[in-house]
Every structure is written in C-alpha cells, then in structure tokens.
Design a protein around this nucleic acid. Structure first.
Length: 767
DNA sequence: CAGTGAGCGAGCTTCCGCTTGACTT
C-alpha cells in the first residue's frame, strides 16, 4: 500500500519528480492521452447530441492496467498532467478510467520541474476544471468531424487514401500559394551603383565602399550617370553617428528551435525533435515540445551566475520573456539546459551540437544588449542630385553577441556594414572605381520545413507536438515534396568606371539554388483548389483562430460545447453533401505543350493513373508513348523541352565488361542495369545526366556491399544453422530460416552460442 | 519486385494532440 500516486504525462518527468517528493510518493506516467475516439469509425453519435465514444487504444491497455492497479493500492491519487487544455482532458480521462471521483480528485499543476514548484503544487491542489475539459472535447470532436467527413469526399472525388484536415490542408495551401506566387512572379531588372573610395589617413590609404541612393532602370541611364561622374568631384556632406543596440532573442520554443537548428545545421524538423528527445530523456534539457519562452527563477539565477563568472557583471542582464504567439498554452518552460553550468555534454555529434545551441541561446537571453555605433556618411557629387551613402557599424560593446547570434533564413542583398575610416564634412575622398551592376528583383522564397512551421505558428495553427508530424503527413500523402534545385545560370551586365574609362562586361551567376525547400505536387495543387472551392471556411487561414475563440469561451464556462459543435456542424455538413453531389475533380484534363519535332505528334501532360505523366501522340486511337514527370515538375509549368527529355529513358550509357550499361527508372526509382543485375542510383544521381564512369562505380560498390553482407560475423561449429550476420538494420541472428533482433547491450563479436539460443527462445516466447 | 495507361469493383483509406518505444532483414 502506497500513500500517494502521482500521475504525469511523461516518464522522464516522472523520474525527476519522484526524487523531489520522497518515499511517500510513487510517480508514474500516462504516456500522454490514454483514451481517444474510436479509430475505426467516426466515434461520435451525431444524433445523440454529438456524444463521443472513447476507447482505450490497444497500445495504452498496458499502461492503464498498471495505473489502475497502483491507484487501487494508493490512498490518494494526484493528477499532475500539464495545465493546458489537453492536459486537463488527460486528467479527466484518467479520473474516468480509474474510477476516481471528479469532485474530490486532487489535480495539481506546475509549469517548471523544480523542487519548489512541485512542493508548492502539492500544497495547493484543485479539482478538475470540467469547462476546460469540455473545450478539449470540442476541439477533438471538431477535428474528427472535419477530418473524417472531408477525407472521404476526396476519396470519391479525387483519389483514394487522400486526407484533409483543419491543420494539414491549410499547411498545404500555404505551400501551393507560395508556388503560384513564384510562378506568376515577373522579375524586373535594375542597376545598383556602388563606389570604392579611398582617403589618406596618417599617410596610409584607407578604402571604403558606398552605395548610390538611386537605382537605375536601364543600362543607358546607368551609363549616362557614370559618364557624368568622369569629371565630377566628391565631397563628404554629412557625417552622422547613431548609437544603436541589439537585444538577444528569447529562449527557444519548439518552433524557434526548429527554425534555428534547421538553418544552422540543416537538420529536418523531425531529426531535430528526435535528437532533442534524447537530450530530454538524458536529463540534459527541459521539455522540448513547448510554446513558452518563460524561464524558471532558478534557471535565470543559474544563468546569471554563469555569465558573471565567465564574462563579468556587465555582461549580465536578467530578462523575463513574454510569449506572444497566438494560441500559446504555456504548460512548460522554454527549452533550456537543465543545468546552466553544463556548457557541453557527452553524446553523439548531433546531440552535442544541438545541446550547445540550446545552452548558448539560453545564456545569451540573459545577457546584456550589444551596443553599436552606426555611422552614415553622405557623399555628394558635383553637378548631380544623387549622392553616395556609406554605412558603417562599430560594435562598442559585444554583450550577448559574445556568445550567440541568430541566423537568418535567406541571405538577401543588403548594404554592406563595415568599419568606416574617420571622415568629416568637407573631406574629398578619391574614387577608385564606380560600378553599375545589373540586378534582378527576386520572387518570394519557397518555404523550408522550419519556415512553414513558423508561418503555421504565426497563424495559430497546430501545436508544438504536431509540427513535425504534420510536415511528414503532407509529404507522405504526396501533397508536397522536399527537394533541392541546382539553380540556373543568369547573365548580367556590369558597367564600370575606372581610371576615367567606362567598360561594359557581361558576367554570369547561378541563381535559384535551393536545398530542402518545400514545393507542392500536382495532386497537392489539385486538392487545394478543390477544397478552397468547396470548403472555403475550413481553408480560411483564420479558421483555427476563430474556433479557438469559441474553445476559450467554452473553457471560461460562457458557452456549451454541444452548442458550439452543433452550430458548426449545421453549417459544415451541408457543404459535404453538396460536394458529394457535385462533379469529380477534372484531374484527367490535359495541357498541350506543343509538337514533338521528331514524330510531329502532340505532346501533352496530365494526371494519369500513376500520377503526373507526359504523353506523345495517342490522339486518333494510335498507341501513345508515356513518361512520368520527375519529382518537382508540375503540370502547370513544365516546358515542352523538359517533357521531351523525359522520354530519353531507358538509355544506354556505354559498355562495361563487354555488357551494356543501361539507365532506367523503375518501380523503386532510378536504376543502373548491367549483366541482368539492377543497382539503385543514389539520391544525388540524376538518371538523365549520369555518366558511364559513375554507373560503373555504383555497380562496383554494390558488388562490394553484397560480398560483405554474406560474410557471417560469427558462426558456431556445433550449430551450423545459426549465424550472426550483418544486415540492413545492423547485426542480427539467423536461425532455421528465421531472423532475430539483437538486444542493444550485446556486442555481436562476443556472443556465445548460449546467449544466442537465449535470445531466440525469448523472442519465440514473446510471439 | 525493376512498368504501367481495359474495365469492374470488394474492401480499404482519413483527423489533431498528448506521449514513447517497437519494429523493420
């Protein structure tokens, strides 16, 4: 018999709290929600006032059974799930399932895992807030109604297995609309003029740069300006010094961690989350799914101590941050190191890097502003209205920059900030050269995973625990892809005045190179257009914010959840009926690109049975040729040349060992075929351009791998049927035609026959 | 397993949020 059972959501949290509470308390975790609407059906009885039917999912049966047993054996059960809407619902479901009385069940909450906070919580228990629970039920039921009524419409009208929902469909819409902006963008050109000046200071030549305060639209105008500069003289007309300061960014939330680690290390949001999970489980950082920027008093004090001892008093500045994002629920602290004095940890390189990033960000957030002095110098040109402007910046006190500076998503062209020589009004700097370079206005940038997360967060859509899964879902459904683009080469004109001569040159640059950026697929565009047309309310960027207001009213007891859902459904369901009555999506419509110069037949693109496809001929019952579009190509903007290129596979690239080497694209992606054997191309290989030498390299690599794969790590003379082998997922045991996983703790080379048999026996028993 | 594009149709798919392991040969 225990005195007290405390139930929290996360097992790592349970371990920590158990230490704070002492021996009279057993602390267990529910592993999140323990009940949900049934998975198979709608799980809501619409005719009976939207009554939800909750079930305990199969993978939660064990946890619930254990909690039930412990609850029966305890005098008092404390429900300590998070204080947000979902946490309150978890507490309520626990009370229901464990047969606790709602009126006198002890509900406790804390926003930070510190001894003080926990003890304080235990001294101030409350009861379950049923209004907040009802707000969660409304949220859950609304999402189920939307998801499970919309998705079947897509199965009937577009294609099977598609999905739609309050969050994912809007996420796809953002990507689709950005792509359309890029497609419709018309780049204009202008000329940017910069000058290299120099002055003599103490007998030394000091150079500096300045930019003209006007941009020219045409080459002629730019050239005319340079002509006029030939005999002009240049005078410093104004020197302005402005003190300026920079403040550190707030400590990390889930979203900002994803953005920053994405930019700095190029990690995907799901990679970041799984590394952060490891750090959390090891006790190195606080909880990683949070929308709060708050730090505990204890953490602030520890950071201060670290900063003062490492950098001195004047680098410290205690700051309290306020969360401003829409719909934040602040059940936790910001993501921070558990122990501020630990600036580094043991672990994999990724774990170390991510930890150090979190440590620096947290420390910097408690450091002083960086103080700078900005200098702006105007240089007038005799006989002309335009003037050159030089910008300089000097850091007077580095403050938090000593430790950390935030990165930016896409480096855009900005005026250079440099250290300027001491100039004064009336100075006449000499001109080394003046350059008018042709520039181009840029289309908006495609989203990265992290910038899409940021956009969703700004719109109040989705929660920290769902950002990464949402992106996986819309990629898995084939609505969007994450990919790289090589960029294209572009020529630009450079007009330069130097030593009294004007020269014109054409230079070349690569633009539009992208890594891991998101773009829609044809299906993503098709579904988005259809949903926008039929279900504009759900697709509205403000839909979530609007329903959140109502959830808040329910939580405050001002509104009944059934009324809210019933009103919503009254409007929503007829739109479903209307869509089902309507026509299917015109997905078979094709776009004609032109004429194939070789055959003289029509080339078109459309969505076929197996996705987007290009077609040559097939008009009058003749047999058409087909080729799938490449990842990233869209029906909306593929060109005739790109489409014709698709028909170049399979192609023979040469001979190796007297046999043909053929490149093709099969069911499992691009491959090399040689001597009746197939080798997959690497992700970075392009089947349309790959050369013989690389193909041979792939064939040889495959041979080597195959050779290694079949050499056993370990064999046993007394049991010839038992082998320890090296497989795709690491070492494993093969015995009598069956394979067995190795427990992590085993070193495969040291396995004895007895140990192997034990592993086999255990595995067979568990099945 | 290394393309596909005849037509029919049984049975299936699906949401958002809260949590971790288990599991692929």
């Amino acid at each position: 018999m225990h005195e007290n059972l405390v139930i929290v959501e996360s097992p790592a949290k349970a371990k920590t709290i158990e230490k704070f509470l002492g021996k009279d308390y057993v602390v267990k975790s529910s592993f999140g929600h323990i009940r949900d609407l049934s998975k198979k059906e709608l799980g809501i009885d619409i005719d009976k006032g939207f009554t939800p039917h909750y079930e305990i999912p199969a993978d939660k049966k064990k946890v619930v059974a254990e909690l039930n047993k412990l609850a029966k054996d305890s005098k008092t059960v404390w429900l300590a799930s998070d204080e947000d809407r979902e946490g309150e619902a978890i507490a309520w479901h626990l009370a229901q399932v464990l047969g606790l009385k709602i009126e006198d069940t002890k509900r406790i909450v804390f926003h930070e895992i510190t001894k003080k906070a926990i003890l304080n919580a235990v001294e101030n228990p409350r009861t379950i807030d049923i209004n907040r629970v009802n707000a969660q039920q409304a949220r859950r039921i609304l999402d189920r109604l939307v998801g499970f009524e919309l998705s079947p419409v897509l199965w009937r009208k577009v294609k099977p297995s598609l999905s739609a929902g309050r969050v994912q469909s809007v996420a796809v819409r953002l990507v689709v609309e950005r792509e359309r902006e890029i497609m419709n963008f018309v780049s204009t050109t202008y000329y940017r003029v910069t000058a290299n000046f120099y002055v003599q200071i103490d007998g030394k030549t000091v150079k500096f740069r300045a930019e003209l305060n006007k941009r020219f639209e045409t080459s002629e105008q730019a050239r005319a300006f340079l002509e006029k500069c030939k005999d002009a003289d240049f005078t410093v007309a104004k020197v302005e010094h402005k003190p300026s300061k920079k403040s550190p960014a707030a400590p990390f939330t889930t979203s900002t961690l994803q953005q920053e680690a994405g930019r700095k290390f190029g990690m995907s949001v799901s990679q970041i989350m799984s590394v952060a999970q490891k750090l959390y489980e090891s006790g190195y950082i606080t909880y990683m799914r949070t929308d709060s920027v708050n730090l505990s008093g204890q953490a602030i004090a520890a950071a201060k101590e670290q900063i003062v001892s490492s950098f001195g008093e004047k680098y410290s500045q205690v700051r309290n941050y306020k969360t401003k994002s829409k719909g934040a629920q602040e059940a936790h602290e910001a993501i921070r190191p558990s122990y501020m004095e630990k600036s580094t940890i043991d672990g994999t390189p990724q774990e170390k890097r991510l930890y150090e990033l979190i440590w620096k960000r947290t420390m910097a957030s408690q450091m002083a502003d960086a103080l700078t002095e900005r200098t702006v110098v105007d240089i007038v040109i005799s006989g002309q209205e335009e003037k050159f402007v030089a910008n300089g910046e000097v850091v007077k006190f580095d403050g938090f920059l000593r430790l950390y500076s935030e990165s930016v998503e896409d480096e855009t062209e900005t005026g250079e900030e440099a250290i300027l020589p001491p100039l004064k009004v009336g100075d006449k700097p000499m001109v080394k050269d003046i350059t008018a370079a042709q520039r181009f206005t840029q289309s908006p940038a495609r989203y990265s995973e992290a910038s899409l997360v940021k956009q969703l967060e700004d719109l109040g859509i989705g929660r920290p625990s769902t950002y990464a899964p949402t992106i996986s879902t819309i990629i898995n459904r084939g609505y969007i892809i994450r990919g790289n683009r090589d960029g294209v080469s572009r020529k630009y004109e450079v007009i330069k005045l130097e030593n009294g001569d004007i020269s014109v040159k054409t230079e070349e640059e690569t633009v539009g190179r992208e890594k891991n950026k998101l773009s829609p697929t044809d299906i993503g565009m098709l579904v988005t257009d259809y949903l926008n047309e039929q279900f504009s309310t759900i697709m509205d960027y403000n839909f979530t914010a609007n329903v959140e207001k109502e959830f808040d009213e329910i939580a405050e007891g001002k509104k009944k959840w059934v009324d809210m859902i019933s009103e919503f459904y009254g409007h929503f369901h007829p739109t479903i009926e209307h869509a089902l009555d309507g026509a299917p999506v015109k997905s078979s419509q094709s776009r004609v690109l032109g004429i194939d110069p070789k055959s003289g037949k029509t080339v078109s693109v459309k969505i076929g049975r197996f996705g987007p496809v290009a077609q040559i001929g097939g008009d009058n019952g003749e047999k058409a040729q087909f080729a799938s579009l490449k990842k990233g190509q869209l029906i909306a903007n593929i060109t005739l040349e790109e489409a014709l290129d698709l028909f170049s596979l399979p192609r023979t690239v040469g001979e190796f060992e007297g046999k043909e080497v053929v490149i093709g694209v099969g069911k499992f992606g691009p491959y090399v075929r040689h001597d009746g054997k197939f080798v997959s191309l690497a992700k970075t290989d392009d089947p349309y351009t790959i050369e013989l030498s690389r193909a041979i390299q792939l064939i040889e690599e495959k041979r080597l791998k195959d050779a290694v794969k079949n050499i056993p790590i370990k064999t046993y003379p007394s049991e010839p049927e038992l082998l320890v082998l090296n497989g795709r997922y690491g070492p494993y045991i093969s015995y009598k035609g069956k394979n067995y996983r190795l427990p992590k703790s085993n070193v495969p080379e040291d396995l004895t026959l007895e140990q192997c048999m034990e592993i086999i026996a255990k595995s067979d028993k568990s099945k």
